[in-house]
Design a protein around this nucleic acid. Structure first.
Length: 139
DNA sequence: GCCAACGTTGGC
DNA sequence: GCCAACGTTGGC
């Protein structure tokens, strides 16, 4: 299994909305960046990810699971863009802020820290464990 | 609200 | 194929 991080502005699509979609999940649409799309193409059913609030909050707020592999993004006719579906699994008991992540030497290589603009990004297993611990998420 | 960083576009 | 111009993202 691989681990990922999905970034969204809470004003546009927030954790509460994701939770409201329940087990059916929701397509992670609107990505118009090749790197992010390519990561989504690599995702497998059951891969786990963090749900991160950018701009407001700037924190990991929950855990999600990939529940559909890459398919065309229904919000555009442009065939270049694809997306996966994700569903909420658990809310963070404690939100893990960007500030904390930046301050933790174990997380210094995270894409979130080094390429903050990438909206879909891989997370290493070690990083996954550290953040799950900090957030009170069960792995 | 500002601005730096980055990705994309399009003229040449 | 290069690169300047432009638009967008996201932290501060």
């Amino acid at each position: 299994m691989r681990y990922w991080l999905f970034k969204s502005e809470p004003d546009v699509w927030g954790w509460d909305q994701q939770v409201a979609r329940g087990a059916a999940g929701e397509q992670w649409d609107g990505v118009r960046n090749y790197q992010a799309r390519n990561f989504m193409r690599e995702m497998a059913l059951g891969d786990r990810g963090f749900f991160y609030h950018s701009n407001k909050g700037k924190a990991v707020v929950g855990m999600v699971e990939v529940c559909a592999t890459a398919h065309p993004d229904s919000t555009t006719d442009d065939p270049r863009w694809e997306c996966v579906d994700i569903r909420a699994l658990q809310p963070a008991v404690r939100e893990v802020t960007l500030e904390e992540i930046k301050a933790d030497p174990r997380l210094k290589d995270m894409v979130l820290v080094n390429n903050s603009r990438l909206s879909v990004q891989p997370v290493s297993e070690a990083e996954w464990q550290v953040i799950c611990d900090l957030a009170g998420l069960e792995t």
